[in-house]
Computed example of a mutant assay.
Amino acid sequence: MEQKAESSYLEYNSQRSPLIIPEYGRHLQKLIDQLTQIKDRDERNKAAKYVISVMGTLNPHLRDVPDFQHKLWDQLFIMSDFKLDVDSPYPIPSPEALNLRPDRLKYPQNFPKYRFYGNNIKYMIDVATKWEEGEMKSALILVIANHMKKSYLSWNKETVEDEVIFQHLYELSDGKINLMTSNEELSNSQSLIKVNKKVSNKAQFNNQNKNSNQKNQFKKKINQKNKRN
Rank of each mutant, 00 (worst) to 15 (best):
I121K: 01
I121C: 07
I121Q: 03
I121V: 15
K122T: 07
K122W: 05
K122G: 04
K122C: 06
Y123R: 08
Y123V: 08
Y123D: 13
Y123G: 09
V127E: 14
V127Y: 13
A128V: 05
T129D: 03
K130P: 08
K130C: 13
K130Q: 15
K130W: 11
W131A: 10
W131T: 06
W131K: 14
E132F: 12
E133M: 05
E133H: 09
G134I: 02
E135H: 05
E135V: 11
K137A: 12
S138W: 02
S138G: 02
A139S: 11
A139Y: 04
L142I: 08
V143P: 03
I144K: 01
N146K: 08
N146W: 03
H147T: 05
M148T: 02
S151Y: 04
S151Q: 10
Y152A: 00
Y152N: 01
N156A: 10
K157C: 06
E158P: 01
V160R: 00
E161G: 09
E163F: 05
E163W: 04
E163N: 10
F166D: 00
Q167T: 09
Q167R: 11
H168W: 01
H168N: 03
Y170I: 00
Y170H: 02
E171T: 05
L172M: 15
L172N: 04
S173M: 05
D174W: 04
D174Y: 06
G175K: 07
G175Q: 12
K176L: 09
I177E: 02
N178D: 15
M180F: 04
T181H: 14
S182R: 02
N183Q: 12
N183K: 07
N183V: 02
E185Y: 08
E185D: 06
L186W: 03
L186I: 03
S187R: 07
N188Y: 07
N188K: 10
S189A: 15
S189C: 14
Q190R: 14
Q190N: 05
Q190T: 03
S191F: 12
S191Y: 07
L192R: 01
K194P: 03
K194Y: 04
K197Q: 15
K197R: 10
K197D: 07
K197T: 08
K198N: 06
K198M: 14
V199C: 02
V199R: 13
N201R: 14
F205G: 09
N206K: 15
N207S: 13
Q208E: 14
Q208F: 10
Q208V: 09
N209W: 06
N209G: 03
N209F: 06
N209L: 15
K210I: 05
N211I: 09
N211L: 07
S212L: 15
S212N: 14
S212V: 09
Q214N: 11
K215G: 06
N216V: 11
N216D: 12
N216T: 11
N216L: 13
F218P: 01
F218E: 12
K219F: 04
K219T: 05
K219N: 11
K221Q: 11
K221L: 13
K221H: 06
K221S: 08
I222K: 02
N223S: 11
K225N: 09
K225S: 13
N226D: 10
K227G: 03
K227H: 12
R228F: 13
